[in-house]
Amino acid sequence: MNHQKREDLVKSVLFVFSITASLILLLIIIFLFNEAIRLFQEVSFLDFLFGTKWNPEQGLYGAFPFVFFSIMATLGALIIAIPLGVSCAVFLAEIAPGWARDATRPVIELLAGIPSIIYGLFGLVIIVRFIKVSLELATGETILAGSIILAAMILPIIISISQDSIESVPKSFKLGSLAMGATNWQTLRKIILPTALPGIFAGIILGVGRAMGETMAVVLVLGNSENMPEVVKQLLGKEGSSTVMQLINQVPEILFKPGEALTSAILLEMGPAQVGGLHYSALFALGVILFCITFVLSVASNYILSRSQISVR
């Protein structure tokens, strides 16, 4: 009897805790949307999302350039980090001797735990300067620099999740393949990688989420609206005009220009913005975009991971 009662008590305490955690999360979401909603009484949602002019003084709130810069920096990071990370994971899981594996794992975990501002400082001092000097640009604070820093930050995630999923491919698959006269390379390509693919994919998506949401490192290396050259000022609506398509057509050029990510915009403009004003609300709306992107990414990643466990058993 006594046991039963005690268990019931523990159960209800745990229940209250877990409900509290979910409630807090829910409150944050409600708060975020609530602050953002005022903007949409003035500006239509589509104008906000696809507008290319952002100038709070003139009441222009087009968030597309920020979204665009964020996506570009992230895509650039993926182009660097996916091949590097996956091949590193393959090497660690399949080729490296046991001691090398044991030595690298803590290092990679450490890399994943370094505060992002440190990456930002490193980027500012080393990468931004390197880009400026080697490409002879006016400023090294470019989307490219952002991509490189983000790549470095998501690399540990991609490596460790890919390595885990490669290592969790049942050994019997590998032995079965080798016993039929497949080479190591064929076994890797045709059996191990396809089986591990959902896990690798989930790791990449997680990396994308991290890159999109990253603030401190990005704000340091991407440049900001204060010293932005004309092209970007145009894009942001100070003068001239541009459309979504124009922006997309300029990708190669923009790569070597400063930009401003979603996260940077919120960080840099929140100070000047008047609390409760439209500008203030627009920054929260940027937060909503960010939230939706990362939410979708993490749901997708979980879905893929859960399905992969079924197919591999």
């Binding site: 019997s172 698959f173 079965g176 080798l178 016993a179 006269g181 080479t183 058993r313």
Partner: peptide
């Protein structure tokens, strides 16, 4: 590799590929 093509193996636990 050529040797293993001439000598097939069936394992204790069935291990079809996924």
């Amino acid at each position: 590799v050529a040797l293993r093509k001439r000598i097939g193996q069936v394992f204790q636990k069935p291990n079809p590929f996924p």
